[in-house]
Amino acid sequence: MVTSQHAGPRTGSGPARAPGRASRRRDAAYPYALYLPAAVVFGVVFLVPTAMAFYFALTRWTLFDSTFVGLDNFRDFLAEQNLSIGFGNTLFYAVLTSGLKVVLGLLLGVLLTSRLRLRGFLRSVVFFPTLVSTVAVGITFSMLLKPDTGLVNEALAVVGVDGRDWLGDATTALLSVALVDVWKGVGLATVIYIAGIMSIPAEYYQAVAVDGGGAWHRFRHITLPLSRPATYSVIILSFIGGLRSFDLIWTMTRGGPGFTSDTIASIIYKQYQAGFFGLSTAGNVLLFLVVTVIAVPLNHFLGKRQVAA
């Protein structure tokens, strides 16, 4: 029997061993180490400020001092006489703006994925308002909606329609701001819908065409149901944005006339302006809880609908 004279190098005196427990732990921990930078940023930017907000909501504080008062700030904020108006306005604003963004975004998405000659240019035009500063949009439309010199009322006068004080009338102030918000934000909704529609396989549309279906059948049986993920994304983003909306409302109406267009965010800001920092912090915590209580179940419900579909 011939034996090899040139065996390969050996690293130990015994047979090769399976990786030890420490090595397996190191291999298992390696993917989580990749999450560490994002976890640090998330903790510093979100978790730490959130924890500090919950603490300062329980105090009366200034820049250099704080006094613990327990739940007094929450009780005082909930006793705010305009809070019920602000809460109702917030829900109305969020539902209206998110609903219009879904409808208009879907229609524009269908239009801008069709065979239009100027399709690329029109996509840029629709998305452009999203890039403009919200404060700049608010100031611009405040000028356009002025009752005497605004371009909107002058254009209505040309066709024989009497304009009104859109931002000074309690019945139209919040509605006017909401429509401006839709004009500014529908571009993002449209882009989401364009991405969703373009991901639908062309074979589905070809099958409808073979069966003799027209444009309505393509929209009803293919585009609408298969763009549900885009619809859910637009609903969640728009609804949360509507609940938190402040800058456009403050720029255009400052919650007026009176308190008729106040939202929870504008009420919080007014408390901050008055120097009630602990009270405004408690309001921010309550707004955070309201958004969470509404958005989390809504996201869960829409997620279940998407899986079921």
Results as ranks from 00 to 15, higher is better:
V2W: 14
A7H: 14
G8N: 13
G12E: 10
S13F: 11
R17E: 13
A18W: 14
G20M: 02
R24Q: 15
Y30N: 14
L34S: 10
L36V: 15
A39T: 09
G43N: 06
L47F: 13
F54V: 14
W61M: 01
F74Y: 02
A79N: 08
A79R: 14
E80W: 09
L83Y: 03
Y93W: 08
G99N: 03
G99S: 10
K101N: 10
G109P: 00
R119F: 10
L122T: 02
F128C: 01
P129H: 04
L131M: 15
V132S: 07
T134E: 03
A136K: 05
V137A: 05
G138C: 05
L145F: 15
T149V: 14
T149Y: 04
T149Q: 08
T149E: 02
V152W: 07
A155Q: 11
A155H: 06
V161Y: 00
G163W: 09
D165I: 11
L167S: 08
W183C: 07
G185V: 00
I194D: 04
H217A: 10
P225K: 08
L226M: 07
P229S: 03
A230C: 01
A230M: 06
S233C: 08
I240Q: 08
L243D: 00
W250V: 09
T263L: 11
I264D: 07
S266K: 09
G275H: 03
F277H: 11
L279P: 07
A282N: 05
L289G: 01
T292E: 01
T292I: 09
H300C: 14
L302I: 11
G303V: 06
R305W: 13
